Computed example of a mutant assay.
Amino acid sequence: MKKLRNYDSAPGCSMEAALHILGGKWKGVILFHLFKDGTLRFSELQRHLVSINQRLLTKQLRELEEDGLVIRHVYPVVPPKVEYSLSDEGKELQHLIMELSLWGRKWLERRGMKTAIDEDLDALKEMFAKTEALDELGE
């Protein structure tokens, strides 16, 4: 029996479709690291996401690949080498993901909280500004 996924039936609205694709605790974080760091191997992604287990990371990556946001490139070598990068469709989410990251940082700061890994807010803002400038050049 085929598993129902990725809208074998019509979504109720466009927001439901977007949240269905990006739903899951780790998908946004995976996309964020692919934006921030570029192409990453599985083990590199796993190092960035310290509290995710291998099985769940694999599942989330497969779903992102199935939805057309991530490209999985397998190299025919021993031991196996697999790299993940953003597809053109995945790159369209960069503005949204960066805005969410900045909003999350401000939310934490207003409550006097920090992330487990010390992030440089200025570097995030700078990266976001560069992507906005590139987007404007492309239009």
Rank of each mutant, 00 (worst) to 15 (best):
K2S: 13
K3C: 09
L4G: 12
R5L: 05
Y7C: 11
Y7E: 15
Y7V: 06
D8R: 10
D8K: 03
D8W: 03
A10G: 13
C13H: 15
S14C: 14
M15D: 15
M15I: 09
A17V: 04
A17I: 03
A18Y: 09
A18M: 07
L19G: 10
H20R: 08
I21W: 05
I21A: 00
I21H: 01
I21D: 02
G23D: 14
K25F: 11
W26D: 05
K27W: 00
G28C: 04
G28W: 10
V29R: 00
I30S: 02
I30R: 00
L31C: 02
L34T: 01
K36M: 06
K36W: 15
L40T: 03
S43E: 06
E44Y: 03
L45Q: 01
R47K: 10
R47H: 12
H48L: 14
H48S: 08
L49F: 02
L49K: 04
V50S: 15
S51V: 09
I52G: 03
N53F: 09
Q54S: 05
R55D: 12
L56V: 10
T58D: 09
T58E: 08
K59M: 12
Q60C: 10
Q60R: 10
E63H: 11
L64Q: 03
L64R: 00
E65G: 06
D67W: 08
L69A: 01
V70Q: 01
R72K: 13
R72I: 07
R72T: 08
H73I: 05
V74F: 15
V74T: 13
V74Y: 11
Y75H: 04
P76N: 13
P76I: 05
V77Y: 02
V78W: 15
V78I: 14
P80L: 06
P80H: 04
P80V: 12
K81G: 03
E83H: 04
Y84D: 02
Y84N: 02
E89H: 12
E92Y: 13
E92K: 06
L93V: 01
L93T: 03
Q94D: 06
I97S: 01
M98V: 00
E99I: 05
L100W: 13
L100D: 05
L100C: 09
S101Y: 02
W103R: 15
G104I: 06
K106S: 09
K106T: 12
L108F: 10
L108W: 06
K114H: 15
T115N: 10
T115L: 13
A116Y: 14
A116E: 14
I117C: 09
E119T: 07
E119P: 00
D120Y: 15
D120N: 08
L121N: 11
D122I: 09
L124D: 07
M127L: 10
F128H: 04
A129Y: 11
K130Q: 12
K130G: 03
E132V: 03
A133D: 11
A133E: 14
D135T: 12
E136A: 04
L137R: 10
G138C: 15
E139A: 10
E139S: 07
